[in-house]
Nucleic acid binder design. Sequence first.
RNA 1: GGAGCCGUAGCUCAGUUGGCUAGAGCGUUACAUUGACAUUGUAAAGGUCACAGGUUCAAGUCCUGUCGGCUCCACCA
Length: 727
Amino acid sequence: MDAQFKPALVEKAIYDFWEKNGYFTAKVDKQKQAFCIILPLPNANGSLHLGHAMFVHEDLMIRYHKIIGDETLWQLGLDHAGFETQYVYEKYLRKQGKSRFDFDRETLYQNIWQFVTDNKGNIKNQMRRLGFALDWSKEKFTLDPDIVQIVYQTFTKLHDAGLLYRANRLVNYCTRDGTSFSDLEVVDQEKEGTLYFIKYPLAGGGFITVATTRPETMFGDVAVMVNPKDKRYAKLVGQKVQLPLTKRIIPIIADPYVDQKFGTGAVKVTPAHDFNDFEIGKKHSLAFICVIGFDGRMQNTGIVDGLKVLPAREQTLKLLQEKGLVEKSAPHKMVAKTCYRCGNILELLPLEQWYVRVRPLVDKAKELVDKGEIKVYPKRFVRRLDMILDNFIDWNISRQVVWGIRIPAWQCAGCHEWIITAGEKPAKCSKCGSTNLQQDSDTFDTWFSSAQWPFATLRASHNEEFYDYFYPTSVMETGHDILRAWVARMIMIDYFITGKVPFKNVFLHGMVRDAKGQKMSKSKGNVIDPLIMVDKYGADALRAALIFGTKEGGDVVLSEQKIIGMRNFANKIWNIGRFIDMHISVIPSAAEGSLNAHLKTKLRDSSAPTLTVQNDSEKTLKQLNKEFKDIKKKYTRYMKGYRFSSAFDLVYHYLWHRYADYYIEQLKESLRNGNIKALEVLEQVYFETLAMLHPFIPFVTEAVWQQFHGVNSSILNYEKDMATEKR
RNA sequence: GGAGCCGUAGCUCAGUUGGCUAGAGCGUUACAUUGACAUUGUAAAGGUCACAGGUUCAAGUCCUGUCGGCUCCACCA
């Protein structure tokens, strides 16, 4: 054995050994307990970042369960990541001086398919480098035909249950990217804005002043509104106002929604471009005038048509000022809803979309969590999940992107009826019989398919027995940042379809931060590339650094220094093995009779001094055994309680600072004198410790194991091998 | 406005039914080293556990309040 553990030399060979010998391949084995984790879908087009590296939590659970003898499945899946991927592809097109509008739908889809196919291998190989024990033989992609079929069926089942409807509502729309978003995909950003006070002429003379941050939307105003309790305006309610510039006549109405203290206490009502105004508009049966188009340009104004929103605002203000209708303006902190991808300020535009009625699904999900049918770790996230479920609003699942699963709904050109199928084009309209049917051009929100992933992936391409064995899955492990977008929706949808929970436990990990506790971002330049770290220090070092000294569910502070510290630990493990190995090689053959099975096989001829069985170290060995028994107990308790950091920390300190620093030092002299008993105990405890550490740092533990047991042996068989040896 | 988390060594953090002298990693200092490992070992320095009350035989841990930081949700004309 070398004086140092060199990860780069062994990692690939060890990984290939595991993969090729089927250590990761799951099968139904009713003699064993099933343990299944569904990998949170990485983007098929993406490459590995530290967020993915946190899946090491899943790997360690899988490996732990493999070692204790469970039948494990870590189900691999890749996401088409609809808008996300199309966005990246469009950027790629732009570099070539092209845009998506240069292609028809079918060609664009095929091009992106190719683009994704070309890149799919990256993330998979990167996950291999981290040592992930994924079942590669069961890889699924969200656009696999069998998955798509299941997604269609879910859509129709929601429809049949009355949980699906189409509605014309205001949606968050990015005019740059050309698609709508659900409320969860919107990023609020504080902006310095201006509040303008604009005088609206009263029909009977005089003015009423309204305060607004968006004067350009005044062309879509349909009323001016005040609080009914507001004495200042009591006499004006019911009167008419002339919209400045256009002279259109609108009423003054009263509604308690208005805050008397804000601005002038009078507010313009623009139902087509503001959520609250939209509601007010419905309540008071007001008209609906849309003055911003999907291209982000003004329309129907007769004055600033064709201008983009910001120039239109300036132009409108200029015209108002010329007429002396701008009373004043004041700086105003406002929150802008922006596109999470491109940062563009989103417009609220009326668009007909498919919505999932979530209330019944949410109520059931809450019940499942409250009853403990789904347990959440760390516990504090139960509250968060509850709150998330309480606040869920109906889910807009339509997206105006090409890259995705096209919605299986057709509209009759004649009677405008919508017909929903499980994928196939309907022969004729079910209402009027027309054959002129047009398929919805929209695709599903990516989360709609990922929400079905646990059952969809286990049902697709597997038989019923396989599905029954592994579903419900054991643990859903993911970042707490997608509790809402993903975890909550899986519970809702999957229970609706299968009548069972998708997973029995949820374990949430935190975000990775830099050495100063700051978020990692490209602009800050503090991003750590996991693969570079693996190259430099080995996968074990990176993995351990993500677990060591953290709190379950808390953020992980990562630095290169920390990774180096863990690399040192891997080396320590290696050298303990080397130490034992060196002593085995000098065991005199005369001792053969008293050796345990393993030592016998390792026995080598040597010219070492004559054996002297010593009892001087008996007390130390007794103490060692007792202490180790206690460590094992604690370890199991921690592992079962999802306290992985504590488990790792425990064994780390035991092996390094008790086993090596204390016991080995105590026994060194005795070993030199040929104390076989001490060597046996040290070896046995060492192997057991390796097995405990293996889930966290699989490579070094396997490398050492194979040094002792041969390259065809694996520590993943530890329990089985030990059981055989005992017999 | 509602909720959650956090404040412990120079830095980053553990400390889960309240219980010996409060820990780790990194950093710092001194010493050791030819025989497992310098990616090492031994030892040291360094803490009013944010602050103020309370419960208790006993509080870093439980309760109340204050201050400071972070996050989520709602609202924002």
